[in-house]
């Protein structure tokens, strides 16, 4: 039973991170209808931004404190937001009217570009780098079940971000415009929505979330490298599809589900080596019964 609770905690913390990444995928899909392959690399850039910022901020301030951590996360998120908007402006905007597959290949190109540039010696280098401590850490024990203070922070912060995102999308003008664009782009233009601005904003928001997720991911496993985004990126992508791509609560749900699934499957001897396969097998089963994901709407074919 202790093992079960321990795995539950492990899985929830991991799932929360997946959920944050999945939100970025799903938001971009909502407004542009394509899978942004470079999203997982923005996550990596977020972690590296924090890696370079932390020594500077911590030496100027009070070391690893809550204040410096928030400062680092905010700046890293801002940097990634700008990078996300730049990627959209340079690589995706010129192709807006083209088939989505064209944009997809460009996205793959961008993803490869970031990964291989990052691996170059003059940039980050291929080595795994030790990620600095952003917060004072401690272990909280409930009997034999142990929980990291970082995990508590991750879970609380993720919940906070999700609520904030929900408010932005449901209760602000920009959020309303985002929903309008994802519902019907042409009609949104006619209503006076500035599509370019909204899409830029979506990319910025999604990339900022990815940066936060990247930093959380690095806080749990303090070794970062230019390819660190690939695996969580792939899992979050699967999570977004399981939840129903384009659907925000769906992405959060899918992320949590996948985190729990990966953790519970990983803890069983003899099954742990099939872990990646199991995640996809469940995905396929879910899609066979719910072809638009758990919370997605099936759009009827229009003739």
């Amino acid at each position: 039973m202790t093992e079960f609770f321990q795995q539950l905690i492990n899985g929830l913390a991991l799932g929360a991170i997946y959920a944050l990444i999945a939100l970025g995928y799903t938001m971009v899909y909502g407004v542009l209808r394509f899978i942004n392959f470079a999203h997982s690399d923005v996550l990596m850039l977020g972690a590296f931004a924090a890696y370079f910022l932390a020594p500077v901020v911590q030496s100027a301030g009070t070391g690893a404190s809550v204040f410096s951590a928030i400062f680092i996360v905010v700046i890293a998120a801002a940097i990634c937001a700008v990078i996300g908007m730049l990627i959209e402006f340079l690589a995706y905007r010129p192709l807006r009217q083209r088939p989505k597959l064209t944009v997809l290949i460009t996205a793959i190109g961008v993803s490869l570009f970031i990964e291989f540039t990052g691996q170059h010696k003059a940039v980050f280098g291929a080595n795994t780098k030790p990620f600095p401590k952003l917060l004072p850490e401690s272990t909280i024990n409930f009997g034999a079940v142990s929980m990291q203070s970082n995990d508590v922070v991750i879970l609380l912060f993720t919940a906070l971000l999700l609520a904030g995102l929900w408010l932005v999308i449901q209760h602000t003008r920009t959020g309303m415009a985002m929903r309008a664009v994802s519902f019907n782009e042409k009609a949104a233009v006619l209503m006076g929505v500035n599509i370019n601005r909204i899409i830029s904003f979506t990319f910025g928001l999604g990339s900022a979330l990815a940066a936060v997720a990247g930093i959380f991911y690095a806080m749990r496993s303090p070794g970062i490298d230019p390819l660190m985004g690939m695996k969580p990126g792939l899992y979050a992508f699967v999570a977004a599809v399981i939840g129903g791509i384009g659907n925000l609560p769906g992405a959060a749900l899918g992320g949590l589900l996948l985190g729990l699934l990966e953790t519970f499957a990983g803890g069983i001897p003899g099954v742990s080596n099939y872990r990646d396969g199991i995640a996809f097998a469940i995905l396929i089963v879910i899609l066979l019964f719910k072809p638009a994901g758990l919370l997605g709407r099936i759009q009827p074919e229009k003739v």
């Binding site: 899909y29 899978i35 699967v238 791509i245 396969g277 996809f280 097998a281 995905l283 899609l287 994901g293």
Partner: peptide, 28 residues
């Protein structure tokens, strides 16, 4: 066969999933 029910991105992810499952099976 699943492609009968799925289209677009959902089909893409299912084929991706099959590809990964095949790899994991050979790997073990």
């Amino acid at each position: 066969l699943p492609s009968l029910r799925l289209r677009g991105d959902y089909l893409a992810i299912v084929t991706l999933g099959f590809g990964e499952i095949i790899r994991v099976v050979f790997q073990t």
